[in-house]
């Protein structure tokens, strides 16, 4: 028994060193729904680099956007971070001092090579006739959405709901707050991540509607058999911009800056944008977007900068300790 363990130990150490010696390796720390996307991107990028004579291996780590940011702050050696929202990379800049505060200006389009939006996933035939945000607070309806405190996607959903309520005739901040409070009263389970919520809605048959990333909704339709669900686009939603950045302190120490930058730039190339679109993320490249236009209906979208004054403000107002989200969840409501 002991000998087997010893052999295993030796073997794994050998395997680890062999893998490191042969290539440049990058670590991409990302959020939950991008697993399939980056598997394909990584392969395409490695092929492109191989053509130039470099062998690049990219490892990926996925998890809740906030907890991934925290791991990087605590010392996870991420060359690049590709997270769900800018606030989490801001936190790495602010709490970890691992990259400059103006990181978002370094790459085009708010450093977001792809976007998404929040949609409703309902059961086939839309039995509860859910057409817009207002329908979600019908009595008895159950809404599935993860906890905005732990899930990046859920924060976009929350803000989209808020924005819709605020933009209704006679809408204002108080009315919007009342609306999200009513909305979250219809939520029977607050899952910690987007995938857990999707599983509860699809596999467990919980709830009547799932608030989801557009890409995640398409993916779950594909994975769980498309016949059982359909996507509903509300009258307006939000432009979700998942940003990417290199982590300066780490790439400088690992001497991987050039490759890491090339990797992020690669995301903006038509080749990568094709992959992006095929994984149901909205590409930034107008030509690719036009090509896949059919799968991305246009609808009015709020933006975080224009409608919420940027992530720093939105985070402090809504999701910080004691923020609006905490207020609507006072016990004994």
């Amino acid at each position: 028994m002991k000998r087997i363990f010893f052999l295993l130990a030796v073997a794994s150490i050998l395997a680890a060193t062999a893998a490191q010696a042969a290539n440049i390796s990058l670590l991409n720390v990302s959020y939950d729904p991008t697993r399939e996307l980056y598997q394909q991107i990584n392969r395409a990028f490695a092929d492109q680099q191989k053509a130039k004579g470099d062998t690049v291996t990219i490892s990926n780590s996925h998890g809740g956007s906030g907890s991934q940011a925290r791991s990087v702050i605590d010392g996870l050696q991420a060359d690049v971070v590709t997270l769900a929202l800018a606030a989490d990379i801001d936190a790495i800049a602010r709490n970890g001092k691992l990259l400059p505060a103006d990181w978002q200006k370094r790459l085009p389009q708010n450093s977001s090579p792809y976007t998404s939006t929040v949609v409703f996933l309902v059961r086939k035939g839309n039995p509860k006739q859910i057409k817009d945000w207002g329908d979600l607070v019908k009595p008895g309806l159950q809404v599935i959405t993860p906890n905005p405190k732990t899930s990046g996607g859920a924060r976009w959903s929350y803000l989209a709901a808020w924005d819709w309520a605020a933009k209704q005739p006679g809408g204002n901040a108080q009315k919007a707050k009342d609306f999200v409070a009513r909305l979250y009263k219809q939520v029977p389970v607050l899952d910690s991540g987007a995938r857990a919520a999707t599983v509860n809605f699809t596999k467990r048959g919980l709830g009547d509607v799932l608030l989801s990333w557009e890409d995640e909704a398409h993916l779950s339709m594909k994975e769980m058999g498309g016949g059982a669900y359909q996507i509903v686009y509300p009258s307006r939603s939000i432009l979700a911009e998942p940003p990417v950045a290199i982590v300066d302190r780490i790439v400088d120490r690992k001497k991987t800056r050039a490759v890491a930058e090339a990797y992020l730039r690669f995301l903006y190339t038509p080749q990568a944008q094709e992959i992006v679109a095929r994984n149901y993320f909205r590409p930034r490249d107008p030509a690719v977007l036009a090509k896949y236009g059919k799968q991305f209906p246009t609808l009015p979208l709020a933006t975080i900068d224009k409608d919420f004054g940027g992530w720093a403000k939105a985070q402090a107002t809504h999701f910080a300790n004691g923020g609006v989200f905490d207020q609507i969840y006072q016990p004994g409501r």
């Binding site: 809740g64 906030g66 907890s67 925290r70 709490n95 405190k149 732990t150 910690s192 300790n321």
Partner: peptide, 9 residues
């Protein structure tokens, strides 16, 4: 505890 950690608290 986990939620507080996510808030970097």
């Amino acid at each position: 505890i986990v939620i507080k950690l996510e808030e970097f608290n």
